[in-house]
Nucleic acid binder design. Structure first.
Length: 289
DNA sequence: CTATGGCCCTGGTTGC
DNA sequence: TGCAACCAGGGCCATA
């Protein structure tokens, strides 16, 4: 599943092939990819524009567009589960899962998305569109101190909170499990009961995990995620918890367990990530008046 | 405020 | 062997 490291890898590898290119034509093969936007308006917004800059915010890939050197809005792409962006040679054969094609003055950008969850949005003001997102975990605003306070300000289970893009933006199921293992924190811990020192460990773990994953161009474990050059990522070889049910914890040797938290498969070491006191998952409702 | 569950989708896996 | 049922998973929405 493309999460921050996979999206960052996509942006980095796509940048030299996209920046400076002009969109000559747009074909939408699966209209729902536009999420309700009018297809004709979308095509009009994109065709003839030049890709001035490619950037990332959370799991969104953003293409700043220009016409005659003036801003012409931003195309935001979200890969969701199975989306992939690749620049192909002009006239390249169309894979049956390609949902959108932006024909360029040199080559063509193919949006391949088997599960059809990915989305393309054209918007005039991306900052407004992205305003509801929490801080970038690799950005300057995401400090250990901020995280410690933010955890205390909420009363959520750790894992669902870290998956909440309005809390921190960019983590998904894999990297939350990885970061929690690295920090030695149980996914069912309540956020407001995480001590300061543990919050600092979590902060460091999130950053280290993401940086290491970017370094290895993300994680691939099924047919879906590939870099824009067609290569699988290499971080799956270094997973500590995710996808390792029954395998020994790399730190202590105990078998990794899989539980379900908020409908999500969750992987952890019950020795390195001790369960919270009194169950933790049960929201004990105390009668009060 | 927080939690739960449905929905969107399809390819891969599991079960019979 | 063949086929149906099941499931994962990000984000969003309605409901409790």
């Amino acid at each position: 599943m493309p999460e921050l490291p996979e999206v960052e890898t996509t942006v980095r590898l796509l940048r030299p092939r996209l920046e400076g290119r002009r969109v000559v034509d747009a074909a939408v093969h699966w209209p729902r990819t536009l999420g309700g936007q009018d297809e004709a308006q979308f095509r009009a917004a994109v065709c003839g524009a030049r890709v001035a800059r490619l950037w990332r915010r959370a799991k969104f890939i953003a293409l700043d567009l220009e016409r005659r050197r003036s801003p012409a809005g931003t195309l935001l792409c979200h890969l969701r589960m199975s989306g992939r962006l690749v620049v192909e040679a002009a006239g390249a054969e169309l894979d049956p899962h390609v949902r959108v094609v932006l024909r360029l003055d040199r080559g063509a950008l193919h949006f391949n998305d088997a599960r059809k969850f990915g989305r393309f949005f054209h918007c005039a003001d991306p900052a407004a569109f992205l305003a509801a997102l929490g801080p970038e975990p690799l950005g300057a605003a995401f400090t250990a101190d901020w995280l410690a306070r933010a955890l205390r300000a909420r009363r959520r289970l750790l894992k669902p909170l870290l998956l909440d893009q309005s809390f921190v933006a960019g983590l998904g199921n894999i990297y939350v499990d990885e970061a929690l293992h690295r920090a030695g924190l149980h996914p069912l811990r309540r956020s407001d009961r995480v001590p300061r020192g543990a919050a600092r460990r979590l902060h460091a773990a999130i950053r280290a995990t993401l940086e290491a994953a970017i370094e290895r161009e993300g994680s691939s474990f099924d047919v879906f995620y590939r870099t824009p050059e067609g290569n699988p990522g290499r971080f799956q070889d270094q997973w500590l918890a995710y996808g390792r049910e029954g395998e020994p914890c790399r730190r202590c040797g105990r078998a990794i367990r899989r539980i379900v938290v908020g409908q999500r498969g969750t992987h952890l070491c019950t020795r390195c990530q001790p369960a919270p006191r009194r169950g933790g998952n049960a929201q004990r409702r105390v009668a009060s008046w």
